[in-house]
Amino acid sequence: MNLVQQLINGLIIGHAYALIAIGWTVLLGVARLVNFGHGQMYMLAAFVTWWGVAGLGLPYPLAILLAMAGGVLLGLVMQLTMLRLTFAQDLVSIMIVTLGFGHVMRGLAGLLFGGNPQVLETPLSWIDFEIAGAWVTAQDLLIVVAAIAVFLLLRLVLERGALGRTARMVAEDPKLAQLGGIDVRRVYLAVFAFEGAAVALAAALVAPRTPILTSIGFEEVIITFVVVVLGGIGSIGGSYLAGIGLGLFTALFGGFVSPAYATSAAFGVLILVLVLRPGGLALGAKGGRA
């Protein structure tokens, strides 16, 4: 009986992980870029949502949109600052610049929102029901539904059709894409704006599950990194499966062995998978073509 409940826990946690990682999946898959300020963007979006609900008294859906708008803005600002580095595909400098942005965001958040923990109260968190002996809130279900919806949408848009082709062309050779008439600059900006919106959506939906502090964010980057690497660079389906897998593993290992070592064990599994299958799970994007 415990097993079923831990599985349910794991599925919810897994969808949350997948949703948090979706921005990076596109970022890495389309633009071959990284964003080490990802965790701090998550934290900022969570606090903006909280402020929208608790401070401005907005209804929850509006607060989510506010956070997403903020995320888009943040993403655009970051990418505009880094455009030259992006074009030069100078990955190391991009890592450091985004890391720097992350620290700045953390300081700013500390000044704006203080050091006290806050709880992001949403109406859906108070609606709960029992499934197979486990208590699940409507918020949890929203996370699952939203994650699936976003992944399906992305899969549709990016893996077929013109947008997907453009994405893969820019990912492979941005200079050559220019010769094809593509405004690569616009693509990079769009990708970073998406990353901002996606991580903000994830924060607005997932952050209500635990109290938020301006010092959080580091764990979110680690999770995202694991999910994206495990899923295979650029693979939408792979990221989804990796997220679910990581969530299930966390729940099952934590439930049947010990929560204290779940993260270490997860990394152990990551190493094992990468040794056996260096490309990660890598489903979807480059399916078997004749």
Binding site: R209, P211, G254
Partner: peptide
């Protein structure tokens, strides 16, 4: 008996065991 790291904020997995 569930052990967790100091920084943990999500106890649902451990609490599921406790409830059981």
């Amino acid at each position: 008996e569930e052990r967790f790291p100091f920084a943990q904020a999500d106890f649902r997995v451990a609490l599921t065991n406790v409830r059981g």
